[in-house]
Simulated scan of single mutants.
Amino acid sequence: MAITLTESAARHIARSLEKRGAGVGLRLGVKTTGCSGMAYKIEFADSVGDTDLQFETNGVRVLVDPESLSYLDGTELDFVREGLNEGFRFNNPNVKAACGCGESFTV
């Protein structure tokens, strides 16, 4: 079981943590919401929880709660810039369908 980051995502997260001046990494999870059923949660982590699973790629730590890992296993997180837009892109092999707006998914 693993979560990975592209070099671009790791650089962006590391720069953001440095600017922020605090944090041990990035916390990923899923929540029930949206028209397809699930959506990604992403936030900076200031500490490691007792049940957090930890993955490290390109020097950046990713924390995932055990319940979310079954939906995120094998996911690669990328950071992309397209024209004036930029943001994270989840390459999740578990997704069976996604809504038209791209905010939620089904596994």
Rank of each mutant, 00 (worst) to 15 (best):
S68F: 06
E43T: 14
A14R: 14
T51C: 11
G23R: 04
G59C: 09
E43Y: 13
L26E: 06
M38F: 15
S16H: 03
L28W: 02
Y40H: 07
T51E: 15
L26S: 05
G34K: 12
S68G: 02
R11E: 14
G83V: 00
E7G: 11
G59W: 09
R61A: 13
D73C: 00
V80H: 06
K31L: 05
L77N: 07
T33Y: 12
A39M: 09
R89M: 08
G102V: 01
L63P: 05
S68N: 08
C35A: 15
G21F: 07
G102I: 00
E86C: 03
L26H: 03
A22S: 12
E86K: 00
K31V: 11
A2L: 06
A22C: 09
N91I: 06
D52R: 02
K41L: 04
A10P: 01
D50M: 14
A14G: 09
G100N: 03
T51A: 15
C35E: 15
G83Y: 00
M1P: 02
S70M: 09
N91C: 01
L28T: 01
Y40C: 07
D46Q: 12
D65M: 08
R20T: 01
A9P: 15
S16M: 13
S70C: 04
C101L: 06
F105W: 02
K96M: 01
P93K: 06
G23A: 07
R15K: 11
A97F: 05
C99F: 03
R89A: 05
R27D: 11
G29P: 08
T51Q: 14
K19R: 10
E86S: 10
Q54E: 15
G59V: 06
E76A: 13
V48D: 08
F88Y: 14
P66Q: 12
